[in-house]
Design a protein around this nucleic acid. Structure first.
Lengths: 197, 197
DNA sequence: ATGATTCTAGGACAATCGACCTAATATCAC
DNA sequence: GTGATATTAGGTCGATTGTCCTAGAATCAT
């Protein structure tokens, strides 16, 4: 098989296991077994566990970047773009209920491990933050665009964490509805050009 | 030394390491070293790692319970109580910036590990949730008291996660100020008896 | 087809994990 | 003080970890 294909399969499997089990709890053997290759073959493609982590983070950044830019390119208004971002919580609600937010939980773990890969995980936050900030700027919120972006990010993180803690309750949907209402209020005050959050 | 004293020191050390390094990444040897005892002695007090986890969670529940009830007993108004809860973020802001929320990060990790101790970690969420709900009820919010409690919980979790991701920014303080403003609005609408979040 | 290169399998390494055992020490009852 | 009990120290166990090595299989250029 082409080396790149095997490598891609490894990254896919590691991405999944890092999310579902955590980075520390995922072993070389576990990933190799999921892919269906030997541990030796594994080592041919990735020399250390950190290299896999870097590849997984890079993959996640690429995926999210394409998703975000896809919304922008499909002629959605800035407000619709932000609504689509909020909608991620609903779209992935099953996985979030089981394993939390892929971005937040990975970052939290790496922060505790004091792992150098933590800076890559922060890039994921930055990706969303900057993208959201730009959408708010396009909505005429040049002044507090970054604060609004951080606010949405934080509420998404909180919603994901509690959805994980209470997976059987419709909390996630309720919180998403509130966030969309908040977005409406922010967009509305864009025209009237006043009112604060 | 009295057995109970050594046991307490073990729980204290494990509590700290579980928070700062995570449950999985904390070893028997690490805790024993921090306490200053041998691994063998350790095993005399706790037969399995899960037993330590249970003891740590029990300790955390007890501590938080006493803190919350202390506020109630000190003749604070329900609104002041909730403000004190929000103030935890500021009081512990240094640790939160380094290691996130002790409740949320522990729960996330245990959820990924599919660990039975996860139910105990959820009790910690329940403790805050029920306490907050009661305070909102005392504020005359019988109808949506639970929703308001969950909302505050979620925003606290989100604020802690992002404060961990951006420890050098004053985001935590900003978010706390917004939460307190939100609390003012909720308390205000208590009298007028309308207005939604 | 033959040789060079790429890819894979499986074993081996030291280190560390949670867990367990035994012997020595400290504490206390009497 | 003496014996019973409670507590501690340190070694050991099999399993698993990340890492590494080597030999064989597959692929490709020529």
């Amino acid at each position: 098989m082409a080396a790149s294909a095997t490598r891609e399969k490894i990254v896919t499997a590691a991405d999944r296991l890092f999310y579902e089990r955590g980075f520390e709890a995922t072993s070389f053997a576990g990933v190799a077994e999921l892919v269906g290759i030997s541990r030796g073959n594994f080592y041919y493609h990735f020399r250390t566990k950190d290299e896999i982590l870097d590849a997984v983070i890079e993959r996640r950044i690429k995926d999210r970047h394409e998703m975000l830019e896809g919304w922008v390119d499909s002629n959605q208004t800035p407000k619709q773009c932000i609504a689509s971002f909020i909608g991620i919580l609903v779209m992935n609600n099953t996985k979030i209920r089981s394993f939390g937010c892929p971005v937040g939980t990975l970052f939290s773990e790496l922060a505790k491990l004091d792992h150098p890969g933590g800076s890559g995980a922060r890039e994921l936050f930055d990706l969303f933050r900057i993208w959201l900030r730009r959408r708010f700027e396009e909505m005429g919120r040049g002044q507090d665009a970054d604060a609004l972006a951080m606010h949405i990010l934080a509420r998404s993180q909180g919603a994901a964490t509690l959805a994980n803690a209470y997976p059987d309750e419709p909390f996630l949907e309720t919180e998403v509805a509130q966030m969309l209402a908040w977005l409406d209020a922010v967009a509305g005050s864009q025209d009237q050009n006043d009112e604060k959050d």
